[in-house]
Every structure is written in structure tokens, then in C-alpha cells.
Design a protein around this nucleic acid. Structure first.
Lengths: 228, 228
DNA sequence: AATTTAATTAAACGATTAATTAATTAATCT
DNA sequence: AGATTAATTAATTAATCGTTTAATTAAATT
């Protein structure tokens, strides 16, 4: 006599129309974990559990842990490349624009510098190479062009080394977000939206004028409305 | 009849006077590995093999992997605290001194920003807390005092926010070392001793005077001998 | 309606890990 | 000289990892 069929666990193809839900859930869960902890330190079972599916799904959809990681990286960069494009593709993109818009971008995506830092500093092989490539194309060329333009226009000093100047500007802009935990701890200063605006304005002002007191105050650059 | 005793492998206490060699070798090997790769990504066997001893020695001397790691951290900070003390404990320590001396310190200890970055950004628990504490006491207080002094002396603009100014200076100074691989790749610029001097001079100049062209060139600060 | 394909879980596999234990040898103490 | 202690390796253990396979269920196709 035929046994009555009873479902054993949640095994088997689920009911409902096919969707990309599991795939998307896995990428989201992967992002949640990978942006906080190291690749090796995150287990497949953790990710799968966060996504509410079985670990074998990672293999099914992405071919393995590495595949899932790369798929996540792809998504991250695509969304950022779109935003950076919107922010900086206008022809009259200035250096000050960079500081302002990039600060906002960082405030909205606080995981971004951590992620790039870890990947480039501690990553290995293919992943590191790809991220270096994409990150390199994302910002540096736009900035270099903008600075050369300012020098050519006579707005910036002629004796500036453009590459070193970019480095300084990027450092001023990005470092506070990388060092967020330090800053919050040591200065008791939280990096919220308000602080980001202040910091960005401060950076532009410092970058333009420096810290030295000038008693006749010549040729200020009209960023005064942002001054802290 | 008694068997003739033959040595089996290298088992047993080694000949020679007792020394701290194994302990020191383990810490050195641990540093070589841990500064390049994540805690989880480094195995005890790797470290022990580098040190030329059996993995069980880590347990014997340090009580485990974590113990070895903390012993290594302790050594690192002690050596750095001594150096930073030498560099900045003089009473006439200026902000420009900081940039120069810290750049040199970074050039001589290239692992330092990577290590602090990783620990503070991605570390957890005790280790992170201790490193935050020690790092916080190491630099920020000295710099804050120096900047307040410059403002009080009228050398720096009165409208500067000291905390934000420190952040900018630290960013300019430290970021290039953190982002070394990016920079070398994107700008084709290697960060050797010569480049460090140039960069440090550039940073001081930019920090002091800013980038804006000033046609009457007032009150330059005498850092000209370093200009690139 | 029967068959094939797609999507899912559970279970097991083989590799690797940190840690523990047992065996072994030299140094030191009595 | 004999006993004890210190230092070391080899072998074992228990946990965890990424991956693979088999079983199961629903959807799609014939």
C-alpha cells in the first residue's frame, strides 16, 4: 500500500513563481558580513543562515564562496560607479566639488573606504587586482584633470606638484572616514551628516588657504558660506 | 638486555644553554605573517614553521594563538611608543615637526598604518580596544597641544577648528602610506625615502599656505628649502 | 499524464585548524 | 648518581570549513 506523502523539512523546490529572491538575499547577506569582517573570517553557513537558505545555495547560484564574493563586489562597484559618474561627469567639475560630493558619498556609504582599504591592503590575487583597477579609474583621473585645469587657469599656484596635491586632498577627504572609530573615541566627535558638512567645508578652506594667519587677508575664495 | 638508545627525530629538550631564542623567533615570525595577513588567515603551523619550531611551542610559550598575537602587539607598540616619545616630547614640538618626523617614522615602519588600520577597522573586542587606547594616547594629544599653541601664538588663523585641523593633517600625512599600493599603481609613484621627503615637504607647504595662487606672495613660512 | 528540469535541503566528505596529550631528551637540583 | 624539571616534537582530538552528493519537491515541458 502506498505511503501517504509527508513533507520532510523544507526540502525540495519551493512553491511560488520563480524569482531572483534567493540570489539577491544571498548577495545582501554577503555584503552585511563581508563588509564587516574578513573573507576568511566569514563562513558560508553564516551567510546562508542570514539569508535564510541552505549553504549549498551559494554553490548553486555562485559556484562557491569566492563566486559570491565577486558577485557582491560587482554590485558594489556598479552602484558606486553610477553615483560617481553623476557627481563628477559635468565638464566644469572642480576640485572643491570633489571634496563636497565625495564627502557626501562617503557619508552615505560608510562601508566604502573600509572595504577598499581592506581589499587593497590585505587582499590577494585577482580580487585585489580588479578592485585596484576599478578604484583607480573611478576617481584619480577625474581629479587629476580638474587640478591640472585649475593650475592652467592660474587659480592654483604654478609650483604645485599635481600628483602630490591629489594625494593630500584625498588624504584629507578620505582619512576621517577610515579612521572613524579613532576619531569618535579620541575627539568625542561623531561623524554624522552635520559633521560631514563641517569637515568638508573645513577641508576645502584649508586646502585653498592653509592655516597660516595672513593679516591683510588677500584673495579669499568665496567658500565662506561653508565655514565652520 | 638494554636497548641502545637512538634519537627519534628532534624530540626532546635541545642541547645548549637555555635562551629566549624560541620565544623571540616566534614573535618575529608572527609579526612577519600577521602584518601581512589577517589573524584568521594565518595558521599556527605557518608561524611555527617560519620560526623553525613545532606548533605546540606557541601553546607552551604564549598559551595559544591569541596569546602570541597579543605578545606581538605589545612589542610593536612598545618600540613605537619609544620612538614617538623621542620625536615629540621636546617642549618646542611644532606641527611641521610632526609631519616630518611622523613621515619618517612611517617610512621606516611601513607595516604600521596597515596594522593599525586593520585592527581598528576590522578588529574586535579586547585587541581593538587596547590598540585604540594606545594609539589614541600616542599621537593625538601631542598634536592637539601643538596646534592650540600655534593658534594662541598668532601663527595660525584664529578661526581654525583645532580638531578638524588635526584630522586634515593626519589624513594628509598618513593616507599616502595606507594607500601605498593604489598610489604606486595609479600614479606610477613609488614611496621610497626620497619620495617621503618630497611628500612631507609638500604636505607642510600645502598645510601652511594652501593651493590658491597669491600674486603678492605674503608671509611664506620658510619651508621653501623642501619644496618639490 | 508522464517526464524532465529547476530549486532546495540534509547529510556526508575531505581538508584544515587550534589545541591537547604523550613521549622524549637535556638541564638542573639534591 | 638519581630524581626532577624544562623544553621540545609527534601524534591525536575535536571543531569547523567549503564543497559535493543524494534526496526531495514543484514547475515546466512533452
Amino acid at each position: 500500500m502506498k505511503q501517504a506523502k509527508v513533507k520532510v523539512g523544507n526540502v525540495g523546490r519551493p512553491a511560488g513563481r520563480g524569482s531572483e529572491k534567493v540570489r539577491a538575499d544571498l548577495i545582501r547577506a554577503a555584503r552585511d558580513h563581508f563588509l564587516k569582517r574578513d573573507f576568511k573570517a566569514v563562513s558560508l553557513r553564516e551567510i546562508a543562515s542570514s539569508a535564510g537558505v541552505n549553504g549549498a545555495m551559494v554553490n548553486y547560484y555562485f559556484g562557491g564562496k569566492q563566486g559570491l564574493y565577486m558577485a557582491m563586489v560587482d554590485e558594489l562597484f556598479e552602484s558606486l560607479e553610477i553615483k560617481m559618474g553623476e557627481l563628477s561627469d559635468s565638464p566644469e567639475f572642480t576640485v572643491a566639488d570633489f571634496s563636497r560630493s565625495y564627502s557626501l558619498l562617503l557619508a552615505e556609504n560608510p562601508w566604502w573606504p573600509n572595504f577598499v582599504t581592506r581589499e587593497i591592503l590585505f587582499g590577494e590575487g585577482e580580487t585585489k587586482e580588479e578592485i585596484l583597477q576599478r578604484f583607480g579609474k573611478l576617481i584619480a583621473p577625474r581629479l587629476l584633470q580638474a587640478i591640472n585645469q585649475e593650475i592652467a587657469d592660474g587659480n592654483y599656484r604654478q609650483d604645485l606638484n599635481p600628483e602630490l596635491t591629489i594625494l593630500s586632498l584625498m588624504g584629507m577627504t578620505i582619512f576621517p572616514f577610515m579612521a572613524k572609530p579613532i576619531i569618535e573615541r579620541i575627539f568625542g566627535m561623531s561623524i554624522d551628516k552635520n559633521a560631514v558638512n563641517k569637515l568638508s567645508a573645513h577641508n576645502i578652506d584649508l586646502f585653498m588657504n592653509g592655516v597660516v594667519a595672513r593679516h591683510q587677508d588677500p584673495a579669499r575664495t568665496g567658500e565662506g558660506e561653508y565655514a565652520s
